[in-house]
């Protein structure tokens, strides 16, 4: 009667062909477009300086910043390591404190009622306002920096993990009750796994915040010399009108943030890829 075309594997109708083409284009564009934007911005930056004859002590060009980065590398890299170390330590302490408090609040309603308001107060008070006091009472500079960064970073972990611990499937909770699970078993086998995606979401936010906390604390602490972080190098370079070094240090701070974020995203992906919706690829 009608001779409809036979369906064959590997043959795409126009709609499917368009979709496949879009997919290929998008895969390239995802990387190419930000790259193009970067090149345009750098060229513009460079041209603005050349055309207007702006001296490097007012605004250095990209080449000058790169040159400074290479020249000052030993000092800047040391500062980078200090800042990274404070950030990661603060993040680790925030994880311990945030998860610990979340579990405590989850296990005891009364503990939550007693302490939660103070966790919120600690969170909403700007760290810049608390930091000077901290450095008056805490002698050890590293401990002071850690404390500041922790105050900023622990809250998203606490609040996300609390949400996760309370978001267990109610049927699974019933099932655990029927099978006579202990409180510890319920926490270990049901609540903590349920809370993992929420915790990882909080962790990614906390990673950025602990860097902010570390930088702010360095600005406030302000002591120099050996063992100073990137924020102090920026301050110091500012006093000396060494603008290219300020840019170079700023670049490294941005890199630190990206490295922390990428690392945590990768961790999150590895932990969730087998089972969680957020890590799944859909075909259609």
């Amino acid at each position: 009667m009608t001779d409809l075309p036979q369906t064959q594997a590997g043959v795409l109708d126009p709609e499917e062909a368009r979709r496949a083409r879009m997919k290929r284009v998008e895969a390239v564009a995802k990387w190419a477009l930000p790259g193009v934007v970067l090149v345009i911005l750098l060229v513009l930056w460079d041209r603005v300086i050349v055309w207007n004859d702006i001296p490097p002590y007012l605004l250095p060009g990209p080449a000058k910043v790169l040159e400074t980065l290479v020249k000052d590398w030993p000092m800047l890299f040391e500062a980078f390591l200090v800042t990274l170390q404070i950030t990661l330590l603060a993040l680790a302490v925030a994880v311990i404190g945030g998860v610990g408090l979340a579990v405590l609040f989850n296990q005891s309603r009364f503990a939550e009622m007693s302490f939660y308001p103070y966790a919120v107060i600690l969170q909403v008070t700007p760290v810049v306002a608390i930091a000077p006091l901290i450095f008056i009472y805490v002698d050890n500079r590293t401990v002071g920096l850690l404390l500041c960064a922790w105050i900023v970073a622990f809250f998203p972990i606490l609040s996300n993990t609390t949400l996760g611990l309370n978001s267990t499937d109610h049927n699974l909770r019933d099932l655990f009750r029927i099978y006579g699970a202990s409180r510890w078993q319920r926490l270990r086998y049901l609540q903590l796994p349920s809370a993992l995606p929420y915790f990882l979401g909080g962790l990614r936010i906390a990673g950025g915040l602990s860097l902010i906390g570390a930088i702010v604390a360095e600005y406030v602490a302000g002591t120099g010399g050996i063992g100073s972080g990137l924020a102090f190098r920026i301050l110091e370079a500012g006093y000396r009108l060494n603008i290219p070094r300020m840019f170079a240090a700023l670049l490294l701070i941005a890199v630190t943030g990206v490295v922390v974020f990428a690392g945590l995203s990768f961790l999150s992906h590895m932990l969730l890829r087998k089972w969680h919706e957020s890590a799944l690829k859909r075909d259609s």
């Binding site: 499937d169 049927n171 699974l172 099932l175 086998y189 049901l190 796994p193 993992l196 087998k274 089972w275 969680h276």
Partner: peptide, 8 residues
Amino acid sequence: EPTLMPWA
């Protein structure tokens, strides 16, 4: 609902 643990 099947009520399975998605992580297991």
